[in-house]
Simulated assay, not measured.
Amino acid sequence: MSRRLGTAPETGRTWRRRFLERGLDGMGDEPRPGVPRKITDADVERVIVKTLEETPKNATHWFTRSMAAATGMSQSSISRIWRAFALAPHRSQTFKLSTDPLFIDKVRDVVGLYLDPPEKALVLCVDEKSQIQALDRSQPILPMMPGVPERRSHDYIRAGTTTLFAALEVATGKVIGSLHRRHRATEFKKFLAKVDKTVPAGLEVHLILDNYATHKTPDIKRWLLAHPRFHLHFTPTSASWLNLVERWFAELTQKILKRGAHRSVQALERDIRTWLADWNEQPRPFIWTKTADEKVWRRPASLR
């Protein structure tokens, strides 16, 4: 029993003995030594109800100080109650639900490609990371030292922007990339032509992409008619998390863009190309683990 409940064997023996001696009366807590409780269960309930159902008059959410003033308790008591019941009024998260009427069908289509890709075909996750800014700090970056993190000025100098078009191969993690100063249908068409040249002629090409207007222009549709081996699979609206290339963009942002300093767009593009080449030398695929039906009813946390 103790192993099933995750308790020490001695604890299990103690409760069993108390039940045999006094029945259900022996299962309650015995008086404990020390100072009696000053905060009653009613006090705890009052704090929880105020936290969940009310807001202070002069703020959008409760702080320990304002809740202590409203209840007559100490800030430390409020803090302990909030921690005990996993309440964090200072935290807030954002979300957006897709209103796509074909949401479930599109999720099943895309996830089906991830879990059971067609034979003699390549599945590519496609998107563009637009408006990547070449930023240089206004003062030199101070390097990390023992006990001191790297330091940089909060202000920066803009030197222009570029756009990265990327196609992530689901099976291997390799990425086809192309940099352009603009992100119109013209540039997307050039990128499709590059993908067409890169993928062996004997393979069908399945592209997973979002509903951006440049992906659906008449010129793009004419190009697709002239290249029938290309098949487009659109993610639902407001569901960019379904596209695995977004996870790859997060890697690029974290490792190159977030703390990078570039005095020109050319320098920025050079670093991106270098990082892309290094990635493709040792690519790492992102493994999708949830079925479509599991994914529809859970928040997107199954990328690893």
Rank of each mutant, 00 (worst) to 15 (best):
A171L: 09
R16A: 11
W15T: 07
F249P: 00
E119T: 14
E10N: 12
S92E: 12
I220L: 06
K106L: 02
V195S: 07
S66Q: 13
R184P: 04
I39H: 01
R222P: 03
M27N: 06
M144K: 14
L135V: 02
K258Q: 04
L209N: 00
I208L: 03
D278E: 14
N280I: 04
I287V: 15
I81Q: 02
V123E: 00
P143V: 10
R263A: 15
L244Y: 04
E204L: 11
K194D: 09
P140I: 09
P143Q: 03
Q266K: 11
P143W: 02
S302A: 11
K129H: 00
L124Q: 00
E128V: 03
M1I: 13
D196R: 00
W279L: 04
R304N: 15
S240W: 01
Q93C: 14
A166V: 05
R304L: 12
P101D: 06
L113D: 05
A201M: 08
T40E: 11
R184D: 09
T289P: 01
T291L: 03
C125D: 05
L209C: 04
W15V: 10
T235P: 01
S178T: 07
K290F: 05
T11E: 10
A42D: 15
M1V: 13
K190R: 15
K295S: 13
F286E: 07
D116G: 08
W82R: 03
P146D: 10
P101Q: 04
L179N: 11
R158E: 12
T71I: 03
L192C: 00
G202C: 07
L192H: 02
W275A: 11
W82P: 08
V111D: 01
S240A: 06
G72C: 11
A239N: 01
E269A: 03
C125P: 07
Y156E: 06
R284M: 04
R108Q: 14
M1E: 13
I157Q: 14
F286L: 12
S98Q: 04
I256W: 03
V111G: 00
L179R: 06
R18M: 05
T51E: 04
E187Y: 04
F188W: 12
Y114Q: 04
W297A: 13
V35S: 13
V296S: 07
T14F: 08
T11M: 08
R229Y: 07
A84N: 12
K174D: 06
R151A: 02
L203R: 13
L164I: 04
P149R: 11
L102G: 10
D271H: 06
R80N: 11
S240M: 00
P36I: 08
